[in-house]
Amino acid sequence: MQIKVDRELCTGCQTCVSSCPYDSIVMSEDKALINEYCQLCRACLSVCPEGAIKEYKDSPAEIKQGDLTDYKGVLVFAEQREGHIAHVAFELLSAGRTLADKLSVPLSAALFGAGELAAAELIKWGADTVYLCDDASLTRFNDEPYSELLSKIIIEHRPEIVLAGATAVGRSFFPRVAARLHAGLTADCTSLEIEKGTRNLLAIRPAFGGNIMATILCPDTRPQMATVRPKVMKTSGYDTNRKGEIIKIDKPQKASRTKVVDVVKDDSLFNISLQDAEVIVSGGRGLGGAKGFEVLRELAGLLGGTLGASRAAVDEGWIQYGHQVGQTGKTVCPKIYIACGISGAVQHMVGMQSSDIIVAINKNPEAPIFNIANYGIVGDLYEVIPLAIKKIKGDKGI
């Protein structure tokens, strides 16, 4: 449902402007215009003397839903960084392949700002078709052209399911696309399934602080859209002999109102991204202070890993937010996760419980973290960690 001004009927009397409690009606070229701040309160409908303000219950013609059976296929947005495909794209293709096979439909991918070699890699990971816009100006992410391009692909090819990573990029522009298409969007999913006997996507995600797992459906609109947390889906199905089609598309002619001037990288303690690390050494409130992370930093460096943290440690200001693991931080899946002084709140565990090996160090033998740990050490981390560092240095001859 939308409220719009018929500009042919509007006389520019401005009567409606003062009627809006949300200041969402502005004047543009001597005509009233309702902007994105409209809360659909309908206060303006009765005040216009010309009847120029109208309520539209259907979507605009260019994105009208129509028959839901017209939508077929699964589309994955393949995020790239500096021309290299992000690992979450391969995870989504593996999940998308499973969904597409259940629905007996093709799997496609959309790639912006990278070249044909990157597009060919997506085919090897399971895509049947790749919609590629290799314009160099798209190498750096920008909401407006990305939203325009993906919306165009969806309108033209009508996939029934569209997926993106719940990364900074996906969280930024994917809701814009969903709003433009009047489609349902479920954010931060940890699992995807198809409802038995239907073509409905079951988007599963933590809710109420991680205390329950909610299953969300969007049965009345298409496409069904979801963002998926990185590192929760396993990659599979890579085939160097796989064949597919690369379809090149042009960058939108519509001028962007914004321009990316520079990209400032996070000044973290390590150059290794949390979500790419194979070893993560994390600290929590049990460290007692910021100096505790210096001890963990030495251990992480010896193991070729990086530092993680619980929300409690970040809230105390002991370490930057970029290191936070958990529901309000990053979801990780390293080979080894060492939790030091972390009690194991459910919000933290949901972000790291899929790690291959979990080692917990805590003075409290009743700490919940021990329930999911492969190895548990009950003791003072300031005694245990130095012993571990000494042993590793001895084995390495340092």
Rank of each mutant, 00 (worst) to 15 (best):
L132K: 00
C133S: 02
D134I: 02
S137D: 14
T139S: 14
T139C: 12
T139M: 15
T139G: 13
R140L: 11
F141H: 14
F141K: 01
N142Q: 15
N142C: 13
D143K: 13
E144L: 14
P145A: 08
S147R: 11
S147W: 02
L149H: 02
L149Q: 10
L149E: 03
L150E: 00
L150F: 08
S151N: 05
K152F: 07
K152A: 12
K152V: 09
K152M: 13
K152E: 13
I153T: 06
I153S: 10
I154M: 01
H157Q: 10
R158F: 09
R158G: 07
P159H: 07
E160T: 09
I161M: 01
V162N: 07
G165T: 08
G165K: 06
A166S: 05
T167D: 00
V169L: 11
V169D: 00
R171P: 04
S172D: 15
F173R: 01
F174P: 01
P175Y: 09
P175F: 04
R176M: 11
V177H: 00
A178V: 03
A178D: 01
A179H: 12
R180V: 05
R180P: 06
R180D: 12
L181Y: 03
H182R: 13
H182K: 15
H182M: 13
G184A: 07
L185F: 01
L185S: 03
T186M: 00
A187C: 07
A187R: 03
C189W: 06
C189V: 10
T190Y: 07
S191L: 15
L192V: 03
E193D: 14
E193W: 12
I194Q: 00
I194Y: 02
G197C: 09
R199G: 01
N200Q: 04
A203I: 04
A203R: 04
A203L: 02
R205L: 10
G209W: 09
G210T: 10
G210Y: 14
N211D: 12
N211G: 12
I212T: 13
M213W: 03
M213Y: 08
I216Q: 08
L217N: 04
C218A: 15
P219C: 05
P219H: 13
P219A: 07
D220F: 10
D220Y: 13
T221V: 13
T221L: 11
T221R: 14
R222C: 06
P223Q: 03
Q224R: 00
A226C: 05
T227C: 02
T227M: 03
V228R: 01
R229W: 10
P230Y: 11
P230Q: 01
K231D: 13
K231W: 12
K231C: 10
K231M: 09
M233F: 11
M233P: 03
M233S: 05
T235E: 14
T235H: 01
S236E: 11
G237R: 11
G237S: 03
G237L: 01
G237N: 08
G237A: 09
G237Y: 03
Y238C: 07
D239E: 11
R242M: 09
K243C: 03
G244I: 05
G244H: 02
